[in-house]
């Protein structure tokens, strides 16, 4: 579904990721693993055109999307949820979701999509008229993901959804995500929590120093000996 080849990117002139190759097929959950500063988030941002792409090619459903802008990617069915449960704090939950569907031009499509998203995140239903700033951490992350789903994307780029959340909340969010995948969505996810990530993902890429150093099925990445060796660079 999504294929990235020889991708080098960063911010301005500085380069963070080097020659990254990865692929993801429809219906998969694939995660990017690796230590802090390995460039995992930058891969997502580069795909979504929020980082500066220096070199490389990205195709989505066999179409070259290397030169497209963020809003065009959204219209093609790719959405991105940034790290750190960031929302529009002074706006209500409803308004946040409406902004998630900013590019939708038909009112009824917007209402329909909001209904779909709330079905998967029912906890938000009771908070529709509250300001996003008043939500708890877990609710804030759910809102951030729900906002990303408002365009009904076929591919979701998800940056560290578990960061700073209670285990129970994480379980709930991951359960919701799996539900979405069963309905046909595909997820490329950055996750620091290896154990958690491999619970849900089918494959993983391990990054270090801006490069992909290993890739394989979740089963193989679960092997603690192997992971230790890779993390320590042996």
């Amino acid at each position: 579904m999504l294929h990235v080849s020889h991708l080098s990117a960063g911010y301005g002139k500085s380069q963070v990721i080097h020659d990254v190759d990865l692929g993801i097929e429809a219906g998969e959950i694939v995660c990017l693993l690796g230590p802090n500063g390995a460039g995992k988030s930058t891969v997502l941002k580069a795909i979504f055109k929020l980082a500066t792409v220096h070199h490389g090619k990205v195709t989505f459903r066999d179409r070259d999307i290397s030169s497209l802008h963020t809003h065009e990617l959204l219209e093609l069915g790719i959405a991105y949820v940034p790290q750190g449960r960031i929302n529009f704090p002074s706006m209500t939950v409803r308004e946040n979701l409406e902004m998630g569907g900013f590019l939708i031009n038909h009112r009824h499509t917007l209402v329909e999509n909001m209904g779909f998203v709330l079905e998967h995140f029912p906890a938000l239903k009771e908070k529709m008229n509250e300001a996003a700033a008043s939500l708890s951490g877990g609710e804030g992350q759910m809102l951030a993901i729900a906002r990303g789903l408002m365009m009904r994307p076929s591919l979701l780029l998800l940056d560290e959804p578990s960061l700073g959340l209670a285990p129970k909340t994480i379980t709930e969010i991951f359960h919701n995500l799996r539900g979405m995948v069963e309905q046909g969505m595909t997820i490329l996810m950055v996750e620091q929590n290896v154990h958690l990530a491999l619970e849900i993902a089918s494959r993983g890429y391990l990054m270090a120093g801006g490069k992909i150093v290993f890739d394989g099925p979740a089963k193989e990445l679960k092997n603690p000996e192997k992971m230790r060796a890779l993390y320590l660079g042996k």
Partner: peptide, 8 residues
């Protein structure tokens, strides 16, 4: 930044 993310 989030505004850019949703296509504004």
């Amino acid at each position: 930044q989030v505004a850019e993310v949703v296509g504004i």
